[in-house]
Write a protein that binds this DNA or RNA. Structure first.
Lengths: 247, 247
DNA sequence: GAATCCGCGATTGTATACAAAAAAGGAGCG
DNA sequence: CGCTCCTTTTTTGTATACAATCGCGGATTC
């Protein structure tokens, strides 16, 4: 195969079938966020560009981009804010968890409000997906089997449906930026969650019912309540753990 | 203060105060945002890193940082999202303005809710500042004099007091990221605003009164209403301008 | 004359070199 | 032993060189 031909073929495929090569700073962002969320980078520990770059085997440039974004979203904080910032993984505190859950609850509540105001046909479609999602959760709750990651993903999916089907681009963007941070706290009480799962399923049922009725106020309240109760469950666990800022 | 800390602090301040230089990417962010908000970069027009870098007389590196942030906040959008992004100034549309004002109204509404739940002493202090701020606006409204920038700054200041005195760090950050974008739309009807100013002053009075009473629901609603009415005033102006995406 | 292909300039993404600044450490002095 | 000043090391911010890719316009072919 001549080089020329090969080049032409490559160009054609890149135009038609998406070449799945990702930008380095997207990869860095994704991996770093994963490391933080899963606790492989301890809350409060310093984050040094060069270290991350070595770890991910790329240069500092894309790492910088990723860190800027993570900082803006709140996964990483600058604990010295003179000309040269020093970054650290954001600590997990009771106050922060309270504000985080409160905000997410209200953001999703707004999405639910919009959703409940849509016409009946659209709502019926969404309700179907919500029911399916909640049924899976219910099955897990009864089984008592507990892969916490699976539970989180399912719960996350349920809430994602709410946002995707109603929120505009801006609200979706805000939601996408802050919602995943709840996972950091979720993992704190992952073991204690299975017995609480049944309650969550119940709360979801209330949400679905309000949307089905097209009752915007009720839908918003139900979603807020779901998050508020989640925050309280979380607070109890944090309390019992003795609120250590880092681990 | 122990001698140790005092000496260290003195050394630090003396060195920092000597040259209070700002990081280039902070300057770039500020200047670029200003250019976009004031319309010197037309909505929809392409944004090229090298051009901006030449214009600000710095290298592309800090410009890139600034653009990433502006993109995340919504001032700039990627209109081709393959491996190489092409950026453009976010266009001003009726839909976007509606979502923007709606979100800001709800965010600030939440801040107002928190504020109204504080103890009476704190509230009284804030109410004082709000009254002072609104009094200035009222004076401008009566005078009919109309430096629109001054009006915007005053109105912005009023709302800023609400957020600063009640919202936690996360809510404040979200607010700080999206609120300034309303100025882009505000400027569209800056000329037609002076006669509407009286109404805004009245709406502010309702907000203040609800906070003074400590009525959280009423405070939240009043703030939401203020923004909703603002959005409607804006929509009328956009309508009359024929909704041209760029100018 | 229209569609397609090719090549080149324009533009973004990445790596690296360099500058500046913060922190860490160590010698000297009391 | 503690404090201060100075040097050294670590780490961030900026500039620049290089690579990859996008898009446009002209050439080619039928």
């Amino acid at each position: 195969m001549t080089p020329k031909f090969k080049a032409a073929a490559a160009r054609r495929t890149s135009r038609v079938a998406a070449d799945h090569r990702e930008r380095s700073f997207d990869v860095a962002y994704r991996k770093l966020r994963e490391l933080i969320v899963r606790g492989r980078l301890s809350p409060g520990s310093r984050v040094v560009e060069a270290d991350i770059a070595r770890r991910l085997e790329i240069s500092r440039t894309p790492v910088r981009s990723a860190l800027h974004r993570l900082q803006q979203e709140g996964y990483v904080v600058a604990y010295r804010t003179t000309r040269q910032a020093r970054l650290a993984v954001a600590p997990l505190t009771k106050e922060d968890s309270r504000e985080l859950y409160w905000i997410v609850g209200h953001i999703e509540g707004l999405a639910g409000r919009l959703l409940a105001q849509q016409d009946e046909a659209s709502r019926a479609h969404v309700v179907e997906r919500l029911l399916a999602s909640n049924a899976e959760l219910s099955k897990l709750a009864e089984g008592g089997s507990g892969d916490p990651s699976r539970i989180f993903d399912l719960d996350m999916g349920f809430h994602q449906v709410l946002v995707d089907s109603a929120a505009g681009p801006r609200l979706s963007a805000i939601h996408a930026a802050i919602k995943p941070q709840t996972e950091r706290y979720w993992r704190l009480y992952a073991s204690a969650i299975t017995d609480q799962l049944g309650k969550s399923v119940e709360e979801h049922a209330h949400i679905i019912e309000a949307i089905e009725r097209g009752d915007a106020d009720a839908a918003e309240r139900a979603i807020q309540l779901n998050w508020q109760l989640g925050a309280e469950r979380l607070a109890r666990v944090i309390e019992s753990l003795g609120e250590r800022g880092s681990w």
